[in-house]
Write a protein that binds this DNA or RNA. Structure first.
Lengths: 151, 151
DNA sequence: CAGTATTCGTTGCAATTGCTACGATGTCAA
DNA sequence: TTGACATCGTAGCAATTGCAACGAATACTG
């Protein structure tokens, strides 16, 4: 019966913030992913790279994307290679600095985004509606605080 | 110069909630992971399984863990196998239902948690302090709303 | 009780990931 | 100019992951 002294402090993972954030992030990512996985065959990093290209200027290198979407360089590189294989973007060496690889959406890529971005925006609107204005502002403020540098 | 008609709606990944949640989750997970990766050689799923065992009763099966910590069954199985190999928990067949595998912390596992849990709690306290009482309550409420069923 | 369906946990296989090293290009200083 | 150093992107390799199929044990149905 006796498992020994209960020397462990009480702990509930369900109230633990890193865990809760991970669960919320995974859940919303998966909800969203249903929009683009089944319909367009995209993975999460593929979606991110495309979304970044949609929102940024025309001459974007791998390192620009890396800085913008919180992926490691090699992951951007591999994701871009896959997207290029699918015909959604082109990779060309930058004439100004031949170390750089410029990523540019193809017409097919733009067409896909023209369909997908409104769906993403609708998803965002749905979440905001569910949280309510005050709730959303609270979340926004908290995320902003978490995004800020610490240490 | 002309890239064709700008047929894409404006979109900024930086304001997109699934993305922001993913970034915040990854960041806090990594901050926390520094506590247990360098020091105890644990991975995230290993930490989660141990934390769940710490907070739950003594007779916990793989499927109980699965339900509790948002991991797929096979991931719990593999994680438990690794933890068993490290000597942090034992796996035994349940006498009541021999399909079930009961996971139980070893003394080494309990000792590790006795060191680690206070660090995790301190981390949580630090985040709450950074957010302030109002900020934390706002985040808590929003996460609760996101955790609730939708559809 | 026999036969079928379901649950539980594990594993094989292919794909993805993370780390590290590498070649290619560019920068800087003497 | 030349040589050391930094940056960019890629690729090799090992480890992890996701999926699906499987064997074992139990529950259900007639």
């Amino acid at each position: 019966m006796d498992d020994g002294p209960d020397d462990l402090p009480p702990f509930d993972l369900g109230t633990f913030l890193p865990y809760r954030l991970a669960v919320a992030a995974k859940r919303s990512s998966e909800d969203l992913a249903r929009l683009y996985r089944d319909r367009f065959g995209l993975t999460v990093p593929e979606w991110r790279v495309l979304a970044h290209l949609a929102g940024a200027g025309p001459d974007i290198s791998v390192r620009d994307v890396e800085a913008g979407i919180q992926l490691e360089r090699y992951e951007v590189s591999r994701t871009a290679a896959r997207l290029a294989a699918k015909g959604l973007l082109e990779k060309t060496a930058s004439p100004a600095d031949r170390r750089l690889v410029v990523l540019r959406l193809t017409p097919a890529g733009r067409a896909l985004l023209a369909e997908l971005l409104p769906l993403a925006q609708a998803y965002q609107a749905r979440i905001e509606a569910r949280l309510g204005a005050a709730g959303y502002q609270g979340l926004d403020a908290a995320l902003r605080a978490l995004e800020a540098e610490e240490d």
